Computed example of a mutant assay.
Amino acid sequence: MNEHPASSDRPLEGRPVLVTGATGGLGGRVARLLGEAGAPLTLVARDQRRLDDLTGVEGARRAVDLTTPEGPAEAVRAALEAHGSLAGVVHAAGVVAFGPVTDVDDDTVDELFLLNALAPLRLLRAAAPALRESAGAHGDAFLVTFSGVVAEHPQKGMAAYSASKAASWALAAAAGDELRRDRVRVLDVRPPHTETGLAEHPVAGEAPRLPAGKDPDDVAARVVRAVLDGDRDLPTSAF
């Protein structure tokens, strides 16, 4: 475990962070910035090959399917095995689907909710003991979720996706209140549409014509700044 004290230019020195969706357009950028801030990283994604090919960021790497009941706990174990403690979790893994809710089949609904809503709940449940311990030692620990603009403004043609993200937002709001006394922050992030490439790879349906999205580098920088500043909510209006 890295025990080097934090400095102003590396404020997360010795504070291990688990990042899911680390091969994604936003997760990879957030991971890189957290690493630059000194955090020892554990990088999780579903595809080991893509993890192995990931460049520009250092850290332990583990392929995990977070849609399974045991996947989130496996990801947390990987982080603890790699670094001995856990100061933060960033759940940047997610999937999207398009189409009227009457056309979305059960398999698609299951995948949306398993990854977008149940995975962060299971991650928090699995990570809570280590996060509490880290908060006791350092005064703060965190879990970051990405519910996105559709949690605030559900969209037609994206009803099932919007519902899965609204569930994530509700989890973050309630769990954040529950864990406040333990000094564990739950930070929900709701950026506008961002050019991560996610919309080009839906699990079902076809993306409608979307306006130009936010620069993912700018969004990632804003998220990491919120982590470092101790924020507990990052609404769409903050971007």
Results as ranks from 00 to 15, higher is better:
L123A: 12
G56M: 12
D233A: 15
L234E: 02
L124M: 07
N2A: 09
V57R: 03
G71I: 09
K165H: 06
A79H: 05
A159V: 11
N2H: 14
R222Y: 02
F98V: 02
V57M: 03
A127C: 11
L34C: 11
A130L: 05
A130R: 08
H201R: 14
T67V: 14
A167I: 01
H153Y: 15
E111C: 14
A92T: 06
L131K: 12
V150F: 11
R62Y: 12
E178L: 14
L34M: 05
V184K: 00
G71M: 07
F113R: 11
A22V: 04
A160F: 11
F239Q: 03
H201K: 14
G35N: 05
D47L: 06
R185S: 03
M158K: 02
V95P: 12
A6T: 10
D53Q: 15
L123F: 13
A97R: 01
E195V: 04
M1C: 06
E58P: 00
R125G: 09
T55G: 08
T68V: 10
V57E: 04
D103R: 11
V64P: 07
L12W: 07
A45I: 01
V144Y: 10
P211G: 10
S147T: 07
L234V: 02
P11K: 09
G27H: 13
D52H: 05
P235D: 10
L121P: 00
G157C: 08
T23Y: 01
D65Q: 08
H91V: 09
G27R: 12
D231F: 02
G14A: 05
R15V: 03
V224Y: 09
G205M: 10
H138M: 07
A163V: 07
E81Y: 01
V101H: 02
H201V: 11
A137C: 01
G139E: 11
L80E: 11
S8F: 13
D106S: 01
G56S: 07
L80Y: 07
A126K: 13
E58F: 02
V57N: 04
L228N: 10
P154H: 04
L171V: 05
H4M: 12
V150G: 04
R50L: 07
T194G: 06
G84M: 13
V30M: 06
D218N: 00
R77C: 02
H138S: 13
E74V: 14
V219T: 12
D188P: 08
D53V: 09
D188T: 08
T145Q: 14
E74N: 08
E3C: 06
V109R: 07
V109A: 09
L112C: 13
L51S: 07
A6S: 13
F113C: 10
E58D: 04
S7E: 11
H138R: 11
L66D: 10
R46W: 13
F146L: 15
H138I: 01
L143W: 07
L43S: 09
A141T: 14
S237W: 04
V150N: 07
T55Q: 12
L26R: 08
T236E: 15
Q48M: 14
P11L: 13
D103T: 14
H201A: 08
L143N: 03
L121R: 06
A226N: 10
E133K: 03
V95C: 10
A151H: 02
R125W: 02
H138G: 04
D53L: 15
H201F: 05
V203P: 01
A207M: 03
A39T: 05
R225D: 15
L187F: 06
S85R: 15
A39R: 09
R122M: 00
L198F: 05
D110S: 09
L33C: 00
K156C: 01
T20M: 02
A126N: 09
